[in-house]
Design a protein around this nucleic acid. Structure first.
Lengths: 120, 120
DNA sequence: TCCGTTAGTTCCGAAATCCCGAACTATGGG
DNA sequence: CCCATAGTTCGGGATTTCGGAACTAACGGA
């Protein structure tokens, strides 16, 4: 399996980030990856609130997040591990991710099961 | 003409805001309304960069921004005047709009013709 | 009052996107 | 080699977006 494509941080577009996080399911997935700090397998993320997300949808959500520059994915054995690119993104767009995750946390709904925003 | 629908600020959803601003054309329109501070007619906003936006598309962009809670629109005589709801939105989701507009400004592209972000 | 002009909205078909089940691929373990 | 697990790709139906054409609302002038 060839290495997955990840955009260089300087190629990351604000529009892509906003689009990726404008879907509550994707935002919830990202929140969990970011708050887990380290790494998280896809299959551990297959539910948002009480809603089950089918595998194919999950896969495309990950693709959107990855191509938006929000996460980095690599295969380890049979499973995929994901970690967030918060630090890089925050260096390029200061405060953006924190404000977005805060907004979802404020709104309360749609991101149940996620922790606090990554603060950077 | 019945008054246009505007969501109460507490009903404004982060997902709707991100969706609305994930389109560079809409983000550019919003940036101009916000930076104009006061009011701006639709017709003054019919171009983004060198791209002309048809009237019907413009109308639906305004509708998206309005229903997301980002702008307030009222008819004055024959023209529509728009002003941003930055202050309200910022009170509910602190730093969100500033971070987003800053991100677009950093990225440089897609928002040509807009000024600095509204800072609140 | 009627006509013309300006400013937006609505309608509708084409194009693009999203969603998700089914089939497929990749990796590792007996 | 066969099976199981973890994801990806494919296909097509549902939804959303785009934009031209026609329509409506508000005013100004004669």
């Amino acid at each position: 399996m060839r290495p997955l494509f990840h955009p260089a941080i300087e190629d990351v577009q604000p529009a892509a980030i906003l689009h990726a996080l404008s879907d509550p399911a994707r935002a919830a997935i990202f929140a969990r990856i970011a708050s887990a700090g380290c790494v998280q397998a896809c299959s551990a993320l297959s539910a948002v609130g009480d809603r089950v997300i089918p595998k194919s949808s999950l896969s495309s959500h990950f693709k959107v997040l990855r191509e938006a520059g929000l996460i980095r994915c690599e295969r380890h054995g049979v499973e995929m591990r994901n970690h967030s690119r918060c630090a890089e993104v925050d260096a390029r767009f200061p405060g953006l991710l924190a404000a977005i995750m805060n907004a979802y946390a404020t709104d309360g709904d749609g991101l149940r099961g996620s922790r606090r925003p990554p603060e950077a």
